[in-house]
Amino acid sequence: MNQNLTLLQSAIEAGKRKDAVALTRSLLDEGMAPLDVVEQALVPGMSVIGEKFKRNEVFVPEMLIAARAMKECMVLLEPLLVAAGVKPKHTAVIGTVQGDLHDIGKNLVAMMLKGANFAVHDLGTNVPTEKFVEAAREHGAELVCLSALLTTTMPAMREAVGVIRAAALPKVKILVGGAPITQEFCNEIGADGYSPDAASAVDKAKEVLSA
């Protein structure tokens, strides 16, 4: 394996953004295809840090600096991917439900999905329910991800699931998550999947999309 790919993966895991960007440049200068850089260094790096997060070996700050490093590499890579006609495998819409202003978990999930070659349309926080439907329709999304941190905004998540279900979007799957959310609540409100943390969200997204 190319030594710079290994170093880039390590830089992503450690959140060393300047090193990561320099290594990405080097790899592109060497003639490596941008999709190979993403799939052979960035995605594995984020996967390793995500697995460590699941095992409580690292915490949110380590996830954030890894995601920041990847994001800065993607600034270089995305235009090249577009120019090369590389298309994302799936399209997702993500947001924090109405009444809830928290976004760290949602941002981490968005970054993990991007790393797994999803096109992600981030609607932000405090998103009115109808916006999820409009955005899913506009972007042809197959996945809508709903986040809530507060117990008081869980009813808004229930409402959002109901409105998305009532819309004519038969192929859309709904993924939910956030501190007070449980698998039981997911089942109760009729969502397709629940992820307890950002690192698990990609696996769950792929699972519900293949169901």
Binding site: G15, V60, P61, L64, I65, R68, D103, I104, N107
Partner: peptide, 10 residues
């Protein structure tokens, strides 16, 4: 903001 602060720590 929590995300900015956490990155500041590093």
């Amino acid at each position: 903001r929590m995300d900015n602060l956490f990155m500041d720590l590093f």
